[in-house]
Design a protein around this nucleic acid. Structure first.
Lengths: 253, 253
DNA sequence: TAAGATTTGTTCGTATGTATC
DNA sequence: GGATACATACGAACAAATCTT
């Protein structure tokens, strides 16, 4: 099977990359589920008719994407894994490292998605989840005194949104919101996007989060939506006004 | 639902995966840009103090993610690449293969994002872009006669949205919309989501696209938004009503 | 056209690490 | 502890691609 010139052949992918795709296909065809065992190295060499080194490079590609996990020892081998949200966020961040995303871009999306999420979660959360969100919202009862504290509070506020996104029944909606929270967190950590401290905006943001938890608890979808909309407008004002910063990162896993 | 989360859960990364991360870090620290050359294999072996095989596995990982490209021959070597939108979509599709996404989930997002995109594009497109969209909208002037034609028209309609998303100034918004169009296209191709043919809905959808191009041409943002909102409502009715289908795919590159 | 130089691509033999019995 | 089964890592040799002359 060495048809080196297929008409549908794309750019040039190296052999290991192509073998990795073949393995993926092999797994899909057999409908293997998470935890199912893949053939061991020797069998892979036979099945795909390549050398050990090539098989290993292909397996590392799949491992890096979270599609397989490998254990050594007896009963070891490679198994179908599960791509975690964190890994997917990292891979996606690689793409946006090359794009020029502005804070305005992110807030254009947050302004429509965050209220949508808030609305859809009203009355759907457990007591434990609501309590956890409330605890996140109630952190930092005092205004920040230093730039360091300001940064910490901003990151903390974003973690409220990140946690909320994990509760989403809509996994796509949750993922996109969580991804944006991650980008903003990175920016906050690596740049000075948290200054100057604006006490009034901070106080309103904190108030919004607490009111939101209350609305979610009461199952008031429309109120949850409108509180989040206000919150986003405030957050946008706090960030965009400060800096129309472009972003470039390579990512960190 | 989602019980406990292990935030820093990365227990066993293999050596090549760690080396790949080190290389990424190495590149970031030096702020290498697209096209810049990385050290050759021999130098990599020295720098990271691992064998040739390990270096190659690490490079293959980066290549599979689109972060580097490699050429043989004199003047060859590895260079910083660019992650394409298509590759990012594929990587992300790997993640959602393990999630249970419903059509309702996707349309919850399309209903808010597509109108947002339409609105933001009003008056911003070139003549050539508008003409291209119009050509896409004007395809298939006749109602489908067979299931095969119906499928083809549906895919064609989605390509209108995919193309529109590529024109977005907001790369994140464009990416998410393009990703959803891709998922829906895959579903249409692999399953029978396009039946039964509903002539009236098809006619209205086609009409919407043509009116949308007109609104974009005239720079009428609010009309573009409302046309797209109607279009999404119609599309949702056409798809969700047919099948509350769950989706599982492993991907295809 | 051809030869030579340069760099990655592929394979294999061997040794080491690790988990299970 | 020892045997076993498996992945992991290394190094050397050779093949293939591609540029220059």
């Amino acid at each position: 099977m060495d048809g080196s010139s297929k008409p549908t052949d794309q750019p040039k992918r190296s052999r290991p990359v192509r073998v990795a795709e073949e393995i993926k296909q092999w797994v899909v065809e057999r409908d293997l589920k998470q935890g199912d065992k893949l053939p061991n190295e020797a069998q892979m060499i036979e099945i795909f008719a390549v050398s050990k080194g090539t098989v290993r490079e292909a397996m590392r590609i799949l491992e890096a994407q979270g599609l397989i996990v490998t254990r050594t020892g007896p009963g070891g081998g490679s198994f179908v894994g599960q791509v975690t949200a964190e890994r997917a966020r990292s891979l996606l961040a690689n793409y946006f490292y090359f794009q020029d995303l502005s804070l305005g871009d992110i807030y254009q999306m947050r302004k429509v998605l965050e209220p949508e999420l808030a609305s859809s979660l009203a009355g759907k959360l457990s007591e434990a989840q609501l309590d956890e969100l409330q605890a996140l919202a109630e952190r930092h009862p005092e205004p920040a005194r230093t730039a360091e504290e300001e940064k910490e509070q901003h990151v903390s506020s974003l973690s409220f949104h990140a946690r909320l996104s994990e509760f989403a029944g809509n996994r796509l909606l949750g993922f996109v919101i969580g991804f944006m929270a991650r980008i903003l967190t990175d920016l906050t950590v690596y740049r000075r996007l948290y200054e100057p401290p604006n006490f009034e905006l901070w106080r309103r943001g904190r108030q919004h989060q607490m009111e939101l938890v209350q609305a979610l608890r009461e199952g008031d979808a429309e109120r949850a939506r409108s509180i989040m909309a206000s919150h986003m407008a405030g957050a946008e004002a706090m960030m965009v006004a400060q800096e129309a910063q472009l972003m470039r990162r390579f990512m960190a896993e």
